[in-house]
Design a protein around this nucleic acid. Structure first.
Lengths: 173, 173
DNA sequence: CCAATGTCAGGTTGACTGATATGC
DNA sequence: CGCATATCAGTCTACCTGACATTG
């Protein structure tokens, strides 16, 4: 196994991820885990790049899109900052930053929550609903990055497997 | 599919990703694609957080780990900047930045490539080989984030599906 | 007083764009 | 000359920590 670019007969590991996984297996344990990790990282970066290209003309990136979408899905049309933080699995101060940007664009407003004045409710505006509707359809048209290349069965299987990663069975978090 | 989204009083909320996917399906096309995209984003962020926690004690993060690992896998022990860029699917200037950090730590050195003085070869040092060996075993011990919760069949299936995402079949780029 | 919510300031990371040298 | 390689300057995102005011 000392070939750099020479492929053994019948096998063509031209993909850098497969090549790296093979070399990992020669030296370290957990080659399947390494291959999955590397695939995840590359797929993420390729996908986010595509998705943000589709969103950019509307003044959105993926994080802002997600905040706005969650607000548009909320029955009350508004969510507390802490709730957005939990839904998106980001830091509280990141939510403050994101909401600032969305408020600059006029897509959300902050308001008090009656009954608990510590809470700052983030409410989507009509302009926000308009841009999120356009953005959602554009994103679907763009096939969600490269997800358009997969059929629904593959997409479901992928989402199921990925779901196990964000719900760690152990004591992680 | 399931109509049991009703929240009985006191019942824990369901998975936010599944909830969002359901609402997407009520309004927009491509619910399976949206679900897969959202799962990817959440799984990535949870996984990278775990992985970087495991690497941090050695002064590495995921990007630096990957550069050093690719160098340790290269037969010549060195790669041109452009080759690293292609392997990691990042910008050339990002590679310059990463190599600066690795060189600061004494894990790589830059040298000229004989025959083409435009090219700057990045070579891993003995110290670099030492740290990458330690880091690789620690990462495997840590289960590659939450990948340790999946068996090899699931990991292979996941990597296969993710592999399709980084090899766009369409006219995308 | 203590706990929770949210904002803010300051520092760090790393990715991107665009403008350069430099060499083929 | 065009083209490729790599670096650099400047910008932007988003994270983190810790402090703080406000409220329950």
């Amino acid at each position: 196994m000392s070939d750099d670019q020479v492929n053994a007969p019948g096998v063509a590991p031209r993909d850098p991820v497969e090549e790296a996984a093979r070399r990992w297996g020669e030296r370290y344990p957990g080659a399947a885990g390494f291959r999955a990790l590397t695939s995840l990282v590359r797929a993420y970066s390729a996908t986010v790049r595509e998705v943000e290209r589709a969103l950019r003309p509307m003044g959105l990136n993926l994080s802002r899109f997600e905040v706005l979408l969650m607000l548009s899905f909320a029955r009350a049309g508004a969510l507390p900052v802490m709730r957005i933080r939990d839904l998106l699995m980001v830091h509280g101060s990141s939510v403050t930053y994101l909401v600032d940007r969305l408020a600059d664009a006029g897509w959300v407003v902050r308001e008090e929550q009656p009954g608990d004045r510590r809470v700052s409710l983030v409410r989507i505006t009509d302009a926000g609903r308009e841009v999120i509707g356009t953005a959602a359809r554009r994103l679907a048209d763009a096939g969600f990055g490269a997800f358009g290349d997969l059929d629904d069965d593959d997409l479901d299987a992928l989402a199921d497997l990925l779901g196990a990663l964000r719900r760690p069975s152990g004591a992680g978090g």
